[in-house]
Design a protein around this nucleic acid. Structure first.
Lengths: 325, 325
DNA sequence: TTGTAAGCGTTATCAT
DNA sequence: ATGATAACGCTTACAA
């Protein structure tokens, strides 16, 4: 029985038709549960299909059945729960439109190749693309950027942190804190940090310290040390995101600092895991469902030919008070 | 300019050819950076394509260019970092083969519909499918199950916990612990719990308690209470997975119990977030890369016509000692 | 109930 | 350098 499938070419509807002694059309009818096939022939056809390991060519089906939308979700590290939560929302909402979501985790090396491979298989791309990679994507496929900058004129969902960060500052001040630090992302100064600085100076305060995480997933030991060694020592720290904030809490505890007693820690994103740690993480949360919905709406508009330049949505964060600050 | 794109039908290579006053073939050459096109015509064609918002029909391209593989990754909740980490590995390794991964988060309601939609768009499916949904998938598309049971005869990656759980028990005993409890998943008794029980009795011990999590993502308050109220009180607890373990640690701390001093907590999975919490989570880790690699190898075999019944790989967990137990 | 013919939109082959 | 013609594998008319 090893003989089956020995030939290199995939089996087509033609082969099944021949094997069953019927026409291609009859095979189609049998395979797709359509009317006008006698039970007997249907059985015969299905048997032949099974025997030959026949699988309809999806490209051919699609070609004739009509357009089918696949959205690509491009992320730098799916292990980061932020992307995972967003992917979750994206896939759920996409399926409501009968769209599929192709996810590509392209962090690390060979990013460009991975991006190129992805862009060739989808109708549109959604993602937090850094400036270096945007052109690669936008030149090949309609793109919805998730970003806090307005570089370029593509469709985008724009993050605005101002209100949330201001709320956070107000909350910390009301709590008696005065020396607020920023623990920014490893890559360098972010808009989030700039807004915090601005928010503080609007209240006549200065940023107590600005340090950078050791990696995308870990604030790093030296970052926490830098914070603790400032004088006067900061009594609150806003972290670039929740993952870094959680990592920061852990390191602070190891250095003997109590959170939030000695120092408040606030994250950004509003991830689920923030509620799983002790103390629970206070955070500036963004509504992932809204973010996903906006993204897909923009994809829809793009696919209908609307120019990206005119497509922009805004999402804002909300201060979610828990225990860490 | 609003007029463009007014018609319902998508623009095809034909329209571009007409607009540019050339043949379809010339359009193809221009679009795909192929030789044998004069710079002038290329410009003209590209301009026409842009003006008309032309996007090549991917199905047609695929049909003629040859088969393209898309693997569906079916999960019940992508917010669970276990699935996210696996998805990360899967997408990375798939891209190395030039395969795409379509992710579908199908938890909640309408599972059957979501599954059906997914099976219609992919060449194979990988996932932890519970018994109720397996048939839905396997009857429609080649499937690789990730499971710890051997029900049915489909291709699968089989989890074996025996060695790891035995290592965990040995470790706990060496640490002076004697009253070991199982905090199982919300759905009910698992193989993991059964193996723990078996492992204990092989050493002349009994399971100190068997309680069930309140939900898939939270051990729940009552579960922790049940553990603490046992008498004699357990001094170690094995949790169904890392997420539940982390949730358990949080709740234990809230009840005033010290981890690991009063009670050791061990998770299963080996997720990254286990290193982000305090104390760091001791866990029975599975190699996600290996899991993903096995899965894709099995998909490959299935796609080459090998019968699923003959395709099985085994992955085992490893005790990773950190701080919680 | 079954078979025949005509595309679907693209690319490859072979002329021109 | 460019164009005509034939696939690619399938489904939807329409005919028998």
């Amino acid at each position: 029985m090893r003989g089956i499938g020995r030939s290199r070419k995939p089996v087509t509807i033609h082969d099944v038709a021949a094997a069953a002694g019927v026409s291609r059309q009859t095979v189609t009818r049998a395979m797709n549960d359509m009317p006008d096939v006698s039970a007997a022939t249907k059985q015969r056809v299905l048997a032949a299909a099974t025997a030959l390991h026949y699988r309809p060519n999806r490209a051919a089906q699609r070609l004739v059945r009509g357009r089918e939308v696949t959205v690509g979700f491009l992320v730098s590290d799916l292990r980061n729960p932020y992307y995972a939560e967003l992917a979750s929302q994206l896939t759920r909402r996409a399926s409501a439109r009968d769209w599929g979501v192709l996810v590509a985790d392209v962090g690390g090396t060979g990013v460009a190749d991975r991006i190129e491979a992805m862009t060739g298989r989808v109708d549109a791309v959604v993602g937090h693309l850094d400036l270096a990679h945007r052109g690669l994507v936008t030149s090949r496929v309609p793109t919805v950027l998730l970003a806090d900058d307005t570089a370029g004129d593509g469709a985008r969902v724009l993050f605005t942190y101002d209100a949330a960060i201001d709320d956070a500052v107000a909350h910390l001040l009301a709590d008696g804190r005065r020396r607020i630090a920023m623990l920014d992302r490893a890559a360098g100064p972010s808009l989030r940090g700039a807004i915090l600085r601005r928010g503080l100076s609007a209240r006549g305060l200065q940023l107590a310290a600005e340090v950078f995480a050791g990696s995308e997933r870990d604030c790093g030991e030296s970052a926490v040390r830098q914070v603790l060694e400032c004088s006067p020592k900061p009594d609150a720290v806003l972290c670039f995101n929740d993952v870094i904030a959680i990592s920061t809490m852990k390191r602070l505890m190891r250095e003997g600092a109590q959170v939030p007693t000695d120092i408040a820690v606030i994250g950004i994103d509003g991830l689920d895991i923030g509620t799983l740690v002790t103390p629970e993480l206070t955070t500036l949360a963004v509504d992932m469902g809204e973010l996903a919905a906006h993204s897909l709406n923009l994809v829809d508009a793009l696919l209908h030919g609307e120019p990206g330049a005119s497509l922009q949505r805004t999402v804002s964060h909300t201060l979610v008070l828990r225990e860490s600050g």
